[in-house]
């Protein structure tokens, strides 16, 4: 059974149809990358799967359940989301941000994820003073410490140096090997996505 099923989905933003009659499936234990030019609806699709926006028509199913019938809490148990361009504006430490809203079992995974993403050296630093890549890794870590079936990541590799890219990709591969379903938006060449199991090019 596909973990994510996108069935004939149309998404309208304002009065522009950004995605029309798009279908796709993502299996457990796979990494799928969505690539394509700006404005082709990549982020809208991920936003729809994350439950942030409604689809104009069609259905999205997560783990065999219609997304439209899932509560916020049920969605959160199924999937974790990493958003792009986080601007922190209060000087919480990175450690404080990671712990926000997390249950005990998620908090227990914090040290492991810090190690994996090489974040331990700035964990007590204020998030307002972090570089773009460091802040993005805080966001990725917030998602990774949650034990979900599905991980949605909007441009996780943007503004990362090559070493961090490798670390993040390794993390995602590990999750795949644990049977998780991973969907990323990527702004890089298809050729650099050899580590993905499925690449969806534009959504037309």
């Amino acid at each position: 059974m596909a973990m994510i099923s996108i069935k004939d989905v149309t998404i309208v933003r304002g009065n522009r149809t950004v995605i029309s009659n798009f279908s796709a499936e993502m299996e457990p234990g796979t990494i799928t990358a969505i690539v394509g030019p700006n404005g082709c609806g990549k982020s809208s699709l991920v936003a729809a799967i994350a439950g942030d926006i409604e689809v104009a028509s069609g259905e999205i199913w997560l783990a065999g359940r219609n997304l439209a019938h899932l509560t916020l809490h049920e969605q959160a148990e199924l999937r974790s989301v990493v958003m792009q361009n986080r601007n922190y504006w209060l000087s919480y430490s990175a450690a404080e941000v990671l712990a926000m809203g997390q249950d005990a079992s998620s908090r227990a995974r914090i040290p492991l994820v810090l190690e994996q993403l090489n974040m331990a050296h700035y964990i007590d630093q204020s998030v307002t003073t972090l570089s773009g890549g460091e802040a993005q890794r805080v966001e990725i870590a917030r998602a990774l410490i949650q034990d979900s079936q599905i991980y949605l990541l909007d441009e996780p590799l943007a503004s990362q140096d090559s070493q961090s890219k490798v670390r993040i990709i390794d993390c995602l591969k590990q999750l795949r090997d644990q049977g998780k379903t991973i969907l990323i938006i990527a702004h890089i060449d298809k050729g650099a996505l050899g580590w993905c199991d499925q690449v969806i090019d534009t959504l037309s």
Partner: peptide
């Protein structure tokens, strides 16, 4: 108070974590 800490992440992130 801790739920208000969470609000600083922005409404979307709060919803992603299962809170309204």
């Amino acid at each position: 108070a801790p739920t208000i800490d969470l609000l600083s992440l922005g409404d979307e992130s709060v919803r992603h974590m299962g809170f309204d």
